[in-house]
Design a protein around this nucleic acid. Structure first.
Lengths: 132, 132
DNA sequence: CGGAATCCTGTCAGATACTG
DNA sequence: CAGTATCTGACAGGATTCCG
């Protein structure tokens, strides 16, 4: 519980520091990416190796072209994904994880594992709650 | 990269399994909570010990009463937070983390640490990107 | 004190169509 | 192939008011 408190303080401090300041809390900023519907799914898809635009679109069919473009641009802007244009005909564009992108997969992985192993408990709790 | 791929598969598998099925992907479900503006902030605040309703409201002033109520109820529904009513006059209600709630703080902490140590890189990358 | 109910608004995802 | 542009609806979430 002590470790939890330390972490809590980092987060809460940064949050409070950001309140009222221009720009969002930098930590929240990362959390927004986690909560984003597509960012992490694309990142995880790219963890399997570099892919081209339409290749990504095929592997993540639910995403619209618009959101694919937009999410990739945001990921590139944050330095998590690198974009490389090949001057072929027709043009091809390849996306791949940067080192920073790879490094995010580690802590994100812990979260996925937690979700994976806790979803039964959560689900049971919901059933209990909804019964009342 | 191998570990990254394994994690990726868990996430992507669950995602694909959830597409078209009734109900949302259980993993995404957790991620939504992470991305939620208030859930984790409340959880981290409660990591410091049990708090009462208005006490939470004072410590997280930016949240509206509505969102405080709603977020706490969702957290309770998922079994991350326990709610205890004391039959005093006036009534008081105490919220505290459950064991499950505490356990989420661990992987979440890794994420906060990543965000904390990467925000400089991210920020720099954005400046570079926006310059172009 | 600890909420519930209602209204109202901005944001943003999705569909569709077009381009170099 | 790899995008851009525009329009639209849904919904998250804030403000306000009321209640046991």
């Amino acid at each position: 519980m002590q470790a939890g408190q330390d972490i809590a303080e980092i987060y809460i401090q940064r949050w409070n520091a950001a309140v009222g300041l221009p720009g969002p809390c930098p930590v929240r900023d990362v959390l927004d990416k986690i909560g984003d519907k597509w960012s992490m799914l694309l990142l995880m898809t790219l963890a399997g190796g570099p892919k081209r635009f339409n290749q990504l679109h095929r592997e993540v069919p639910d995403i619209s072209q618009k959101m694919l473009t937009q999410t990739l641009r945001d990921l590139q802007r944050d330095g998590l994904v690198a974009r490389q244009v090949f001057d072929t005909k027709p043009p091809s564009v390849e996306y791949r994880l940067t080192d920073l992108g790879h490094s995010l997969i580690v802590p994100f992985g812990h979260l996925i594992e937690w979700a994976n192993s806790s979803m039964a408990d959560i689900s049971a709790s919901r059933v209990r709650f909804d019964a009342a």
